[in-house]
């Protein structure tokens, strides 16, 4: 038993390095998608302290809107632009009808309100688009399909899906542009100021309400990108909503306010759970992917409650 737990998996890793690399790559790509969802969380949490449980459903909703519009005969790129518009409308609606009335409420109330929003969006999305999974319009959007194989060592083989590579590239572009946005633009700096001090933001001449609408919109765009990438790998379906909850352990690792944290946390969770599933999962019957991420986060919390990048805060009275 001990042998099976502590020796066997590592022996396997060493004996089949190409397979290990493949596993890590798969985990890496999954991790990027978790990181993208987490990024949406972080954007909103940083600017408004709201823990947006609805980020996962926003991903599904954005993806469905895009596909649904295309099905209705709208050309792919127009559908993309319209989907962005829908996310903007959603952001404005959320700000106006949920965030503004709930300003200054305890965080647990805000969290529960986003759970309510999640249910509303699930019902609304299914009402409009139907409950069945839909195929993402990958090719129509000009995203690459197909795959390349790389030889490793004597007879090893690693296969990379092009769409996964594209996902990685898009994620990098996304993070880079967000970083630029936060550091170089007036609105971006105001957003950062809000996180620290609401008054400072007002002195930049932007109202808090506008800022919230903007961050929700930014999170909506991130959601759309996530929806496209994820949809291209599997389907666009409401089942994604549950998978998206894995962004929570990611945030615990990375800290709720750190963009690099979201990325690193996403990769750790993505790779960690794939390796765990492939090498240790069979020992207990498999399928541990469904909870491993949460357990990693739970154990991590016990030792470093403030996250990888967070600072320890001593409470005051």
């Amino acid at each position: 038993m001990l042998y099976q737990i502590f020796v066997d998996p590592f022996a396997q890793m060493v004996s089949m390095p190409d397979f290990l690399i493949q596993v890590i790559w798969e985990g890496f790509v999954a991790g990027i998608l978790y990181a993208l969802i987490a990024l949406g969380f972080v954007l909103i949490f940083k600017a408004s302290g709201v823990f947006n449980f609805a980020q996962g459903i926003m991903v599904v909703f954005a993806g469905l809107t895009l596909v649904g519009l295309h099905e209705a005969g709208v050309p792919a790129f127009l559908a993309l632009i319209l989907a962005i518009g829908v996310m903007a409308l959603l952001a404005i609606a959320v700000e106006r009808f949920v965030m503004r009335p709930l300003v200054n409420q305890p965080e647990i109330i805000l969290l529960m309100s986003t759970i309510g929003m999640t249910y509303f969006l699930i019902g609304f999305g299914e009402f409009v688009f139907g409950g069945e999974p839909k195929q993402m319009i990958t090719e129509e959007l000009g995203l690459p399909t197909g795959s390349s194989a790389f030889e490793i060592g004597e007879q090893g083989l690693v296969i990379l899906q092009h769409i996964d590579i594209a996902a990685a590239v898009i994620a990098i572009i996304m993070v880079a542009s967000l970083a630029l946005f936060f550091n170089k633009t007036r609105i971006g700096r105001a957003l950062r100021a809000v996180a620290d001090d609401h008054q400072a933001a007002q002195s930049v001449g932007i109202s808090l309400n506008q800022i919230w609408a903007i961050v929700w919109f930014a999170a909506g765009i991130v959601a759309l990108a996530t929806g496209i990438m994820w949809g291209a790998r599997s389907d666009v379906s409401f089942a994604l909503e549950i998978v998206a909850l894995k962004a929570l352990p990611v945030l615990i690792l990375g800290g709720f306010t750190s963009i690099p944290g979201a990325i690193v946390g996403g990769l750790i969770i993505g790779i960690g759970e794939k390796i765990g599933e492939i090498y240790w999962g069979p020992l207990v019957g498999g399928g541990i992917e469904s909870w491993l991420a949460y357990m990693i986060a739970l154990v991590f919390l016990l030792f470093r409650p403030q996250g990888l990048f967070g600072e320890r805060i001593i409470e005051r009275v």
């Binding site: 949920v98 529960m112 309100s113 309510g116 249910y119 509303f120 699930i122 019902g123 609304f124 009402f127």
Partner: peptide, 13 residues
């Protein structure tokens, strides 16, 4: 079912 889900979500908020 969908309408229920929408109503409950909206009521929660």
């Amino acid at each position: 079912t969908h309408v229920t889900s929408m109503i409950i979500g909206a009521l929660i908020v």
